[in-house]
Simulated scan of single mutants.
Amino acid sequence: MRAVVWLRVAAVLMVLFAIGHTYGFLSFRPHAAEGRAVWDAMNNVHFSESGSTISYGEFYRGFGLSISASQIFVAWLTWMLASMVGRGSTDVRTIAWGLFVLQCVGLWLSLRYFGAGPAVLSAVAAACFLMGAVSLRRSAA
């Protein structure tokens, strides 16, 4: 399969990852009483920082949404990289390898902290970036 196809598939996976991430962290509600107590405290206890009054729950949502925005950016970047392949850009290979490494880190973090679902998606995305980078290497030789 050509590098363009691998990178386009990776871009679509990144969009799906962003959608799943956003839905997952915005809809998560703990079932156990202890988890609900922590959740309530995160959302009901407010503090002032740098002139703003926020809760840890709002802090959590802000970080989560910034991660979703970054995932959408990676999807866009990957789509643009696939377009650059057709124009013969040699820098695409280096960026594809960087995105592969990023997904490997995401895979490790998913296995460590988030579970099988995100880990599988990270592994498949990493494989697409790997295959895209390897395909670019072959075509550049």
Rank of each mutant, 00 (worst) to 15 (best):
W39P: 04
F25I: 00
A82V: 03
S110F: 04
S66L: 11
G98M: 02
G106Q: 02
V74C: 12
H46V: 10
F17C: 06
G24D: 05
A37P: 05
A123R: 02
S110T: 02
V9K: 01
S50W: 11
R112Y: 14
F25R: 00
D91F: 15
S139V: 10
F28L: 07
F114K: 06
L77K: 06
F73A: 15
V15C: 12
E49I: 15
V101C: 12
T90G: 11
M80Q: 14
A33K: 09
S68N: 03
I95W: 07
G51T: 05
G20V: 07
F28S: 02
G88W: 05
R87L: 13
H46I: 13
S66N: 07
W39N: 08
T22V: 08
R29S: 12
R137T: 13
A96H: 01
L13A: 10
L111P: 06
S122F: 04
A41K: 11
T78E: 00
V38H: 09
L99M: 10
S50V: 08
W79I: 01
Y23W: 14
G106E: 08
A133H: 05
M14A: 14
V4T: 08
C128V: 07
R61I: 08
S55Q: 07
L7T: 01
A75T: 08
A140W: 12
T78I: 00
R61K: 09
R61Q: 10
R87A: 14
A116T: 14
D91N: 15
A125D: 08
F100V: 00
N43M: 12
H46P: 04
M1D: 09
S52D: 12
Y60D: 07
S122H: 10
A33R: 14
S55A: 08
L7Q: 00
G106D: 03
M80C: 12
G132F: 00
F28K: 02
L121A: 04
G62I: 03
I67V: 15
A125Q: 08
I67M: 14
G117M: 15
P118A: 01
T94L: 13
M14N: 09
I19G: 01
A119N: 04
L99W: 06
R29W: 10
A116V: 13
V38G: 09
V85D: 02
S139L: 05
V85C: 03
C128R: 03
G98R: 04
T90I: 09
P30N: 03
I95P: 01
I54Q: 03
V105R: 08
V74M: 13
E49H: 15
G117T: 14
Y113I: 10
R61E: 14
V12G: 10
A32V: 11
A126E: 03
Q103L: 00
S66W: 09
T22E: 12
G117A: 13
W39T: 06
L130V: 03
N44W: 08
N44R: 10
A119M: 06
A141D: 13
L121W: 05
A37R: 11
S139C: 12
E34V: 08
L136V: 03
F100I: 00
S55N: 06
Y23Q: 11
G88T: 02
C104T: 06
F114N: 11
S122Q: 07
G115F: 08
P30I: 00
L136H: 06
E58T: 11
T78V: 01
L26S: 14
W76Y: 10
C104D: 10
N43Y: 15
S27D: 04
T78R: 01
H46M: 15
Q103E: 07
A3C: 06
S122A: 11
L121G: 00
S52K: 15
